[in-house]
Design a protein around this nucleic acid. Structure first.
Lengths: 160, 160
DNA sequence: TTTAACGATGTAATGTTGTAACGTGCATCG
DNA sequence: CGATGCACGTTACAACATTACATCGTTAAA
């Protein structure tokens, strides 16, 4: 069994940003990556960050459209979400075809997402020992440039 | 450090079925589950089993349509794929929106899928220690009825 | 200062994946 | 024989995602 005696979240501390602080951190991370923090990107990030469930590109497109009083096409949203994912400002939740803001951008590591089948809310666990074990197993099997997708569907404590 | 001293695939042996043997095992498992092994289900499973990449419902619909000389709607394919997934004859690969035959139906446990971003082929690892750790972490966080989705995207040994 | 290049966003169309609602045929069983 | 249940068909649509190309503004070179 992995991480046999070491506590799961050992040796890893985050600032769990929220609200304005999170937006600031996101901006910093994006600029750090050599990308621009435009109004559109800011709006999309802001909307994304208000969700506690993973948000689809279309959800975001609708809300940003409202906010701006002008239609923003899903297309544009996808472009920016892709950018966010590659720069680690957001994550794609594969089992939900949706996206979620990274609550600690700038901090690069794998996440484990827990998504409730009832209420749809997603939380995440950081357990580097576990995610590293998955990476290692894949590399062992001859895979390179690995990108783990670790999600758990189930019933959350509230819905259970 | 993954699975520190215990070999990864400890205490777990499979028959890795293929071809006719696999179809037989699938039929047996489905009947065991109290479901019928119909012509349509047989055809869909057969087609699914020929793929080494995860197959989309539409891929399968096309091939089964050819095979039967009559259009089979994606709809019908989805119904049967869902059945296969719930009875463990097949798995859904979330990060590919596609399905793959379970090479050892009847044997119930979590899989780790490795999907190559270049050639699309998927292989799987069975590492119960690892998957159990993921389950445990989710349960620790208050989740019940957990269904882990553990996939790794990357470059396979051939494409690397 | 024009103009070329580039990056960001807009627009339109289309492709892919997934579901819902309802109908039909067929077997089983009272 | 009629009722029930299950598998499958048919149609329509909803949700998710991509492609190709146009426009606009800023920066850099001529």
């Amino acid at each position: 069994m992995p991480a046999p005696n070491i506590p799961a979240m050992a040796a890893h501390h985050h600032h769990e940003h929220a609200g304005a602080s999170l937006a600031q951190a996101a901006e910093a991370a994006l600029v750090e990556a050599g990308e621009q923090w435009t109004d559109m990107r800011s709006d999309i990030f802001a909307v994304l960050a208000t969700f506690e469930k993973p948000a689809s590109a279309y959800d975001i497109a609708d809300l940003v459209s409202q906010k701006r009083g002008k239609r923003v096409a899903p297309n544009s949203v996808y472009r920016i979400l892709d950018l966010f994912v590659t720069t680690n400002l957001a994550r794609r939740v594969e089992s939900a075809n949706a996206y979620i803001a990274n609550s600690h951008p700038g901090c690069l590591h794998d996440c484990i997402f827990l998504i409730c089948d009832s209420c749809g809310t997603a939380t995440h666990i950081d357990d580097d020992a576990l995610t590293m074990s998955v990476r290692a197993a894949a590399e062992q099997a001859g895979f390179a440039q690995v990108r783990p997708v670790i999600e758990v569907r189930g019933k959350c404590a509230d819905c259970d």
